[in-house]
Structure formats: C-alpha cells, structure tokens
Simulated scan of single mutants.
Amino acid sequence: MPRVVVFDEFGGPEVMHVVEEPVIEPAAGEVRVRIEAFAVNPLDQMMRAGNSPAPVPLPHARLGVEGTGVVDALGSGVAGLSVGDPVILVAVPDASARGSYAEYTTLPASQVIPRPAGLSVPEAAAFWVACSTAYGALVEKAGMRPGDHVLITAASGGVGRAAMQIAGQIGAVPIAVTRQPSRRDELLAAGAAEVVATPDVAGAVRSLTGGAGADIVLDLVRGPGQQELVQAARPGGTLVAAGFLDPRPTPPPADAAVTIIDYRSFEHTLDPVVVRRMAAFLTAGVRLGALRPAIHQVFTLDDVAEAHRHLEKGLHAGKKIVVEV
C-alpha cells in the first residue's frame, strides 16, 4: 500500500514515522495526485513541534503544504485536467489531514496548477510556496512597479531569494538585507542589485536611494527590528510583513507615513482568480530564466526526519530542502 508520513505526538523530527494506508478516491471536484517530491518548510516544523498558528489534531497528523506530482485520478465534475498531467500543489490548508508528505494525496482541483516546463521535479517541489508568497506580497499587496526600490529582509532564505528574482523580473531594484557580510557575493549572484550588511539599515538604504528611501519593504522577520525597516522606507512607502522569523513582539509603528500590511499567503493561494495570475507570472519567469529555486539537498522519504534536522540546524543555508517520494 502507499506510504504516508504521520506523527502521533508533538516533538522533534523523531516523532515522524512512515505508515502504509490505502489510497483515497477523489470526491467530486477533487483530484488525486501521485506525489513525486515535496519541500520541507518552516511551517511543517512548527506543526510537528506543536507551535503551529492553527491547531493540529492528534494522533495520526500529516504534514506538507508544498509538493509536485502527476494527476492519478479525477473526481466527478473536474474539467481541464487529465490523468498523467504533471502539476504543482498551490495550497494545502488542511495539511494535517492530507498533507504532501505522502505517496498520494487528494485535494480540490482548483488547488493544483500545471507544472512549468523547464523545472526538474525537485525544483518544482520547492517552487510554489516561496515564489507565491513573494509575488503575493510584492505584486498583489504592495503593487510593485518597474523602478521601485524594494528592500528585502532574510534575503538568503527561500522567500527572500524568490522576492529578489521576482523584483528583477518586473524591473524593480531589489536591495537585500543580511546579517552576514560574507553572503554579499552569494546574494548578488542570486539576484540582488545591492546588499545591505550593516546594522544601520536605514542609513545604508538612504545612501543607495539618493536619500529617498525604499518604496517597498518586505519584512520576513518582524520583531523589534521592524522599526529600523520603517525608517528605511520613504514617506508614503509600503512595508509588507510576511514572515515570523523573530518570535519577539513587533512594536506598533512609530511612523504613520508608511503603510504597513500584514500578509498571509493563503489569502491569495485559496483564491482561484489570483492563483491564475500567480501561475501565469511565475510560469513566465521560469520560461524567461528569471525564476529558479535554489536546492540545498534532496532526501528520500525514509530520511524525512534527517531532512527536518537539516532545517532545524540551519544546514540548508537558506536553500530549499526537498524529499523525493
């Protein structure tokens, strides 16, 4: 029988184990996907450890909000897809019940898109969450335009790298923020136009923008450091808070001249109209060579616990960890 990763208690990577389960027939409007690979994301780690923003019912909880595979079966009423089509999962809001850490999963047909040609299976598995989050925050929410100076925190991470590439694709100017000056050349190669590696972020950004400040700030960290990012934005600029890397409270903004937007990617990935726009933009980026996920290492399903240990120890250096099924 097909295999699936489950966990019956919260804890470290060791709580995950592989079991066998029968395949489930897709309901009306659903598809069954034979998973070829999935990416390991921080949300997976939070769910497994019991720190998820949403409750995770135990026992026999599943994981996985990202993956790629081929359509294996169609429920009644599904149009526009055929058995054998390669697809990417765009949203798994009930990951604890039918996440992508499995050989098969079922989900609404509206929550898959065609896999862009030119991506390998591991790249396709690691493509959507980072790229859709960056696109949704910068394009849909902040209205990024050509020529905009875009300040990107946590630029070495998956969403940060995608944000730099998407900004470059649209003709904006991505400015990467890093706490590690040794990563300057790596970030420039990944798509940054400029790199800020100093505690005086606001001063550095003012210098790079002729005193104006950033038009858009993508804050993937939050916490007390957001105050410095607000100061780095121009009056009338926009800060989109789209991450939670700093668990400390984020103080209310002291500068009302900057619009602050709180962003959750499911806001868009559950909207079929926006998903079509996302898919068109991101597929074009792949075709043009502007978008390409960075893969750290590929594990097997039997080594899924080791993949989580790599994520927790930071051994991936911001690149994506993928598990092939």
Rank of each mutant, 00 (worst) to 15 (best):
E306V: 15
S265N: 05
P293A: 00
G314D: 09
S265T: 09
V275M: 01
K313H: 09
H310M: 12
D262V: 14
A256F: 08
A279P: 06
L291F: 05
A307P: 01
V298L: 05
G289P: 12
D303F: 05
L291N: 02
V275W: 07
V286K: 04
H268V: 00
P253R: 06
L245F: 09
T259R: 10
I261P: 06
G243D: 03
G318N: 09
H316R: 11
A294P: 04
V286C: 05
D246A: 03
A290E: 10
R292S: 04
A256R: 15
K313R: 15
T283F: 03
T300A: 09
Y263A: 09
T269F: 08
G314W: 06
S265R: 04
R287Y: 08
R248E: 07
L311H: 02
A257W: 13
H316D: 11
R277N: 09
E312T: 14
L301I: 07
H268E: 03
V286S: 02
R276P: 02
Q297C: 00
T300Q: 12
L288G: 11
P253S: 03
A317K: 15
G289H: 14
V298Y: 07
V304P: 05
D302W: 11
V274Q: 11
L245M: 10
H308M: 01
Q297A: 05
A256Y: 12
P272K: 01
E312L: 01
A257P: 06
P253H: 08
R277K: 11
H308D: 06
H308I: 03
E306W: 14
L270H: 03
L315E: 11
P247Y: 01
P249K: 01
L282G: 03
L311M: 10
D302G: 10
G318E: 01
D271N: 00
M278L: 12
I295S: 13
L301N: 03
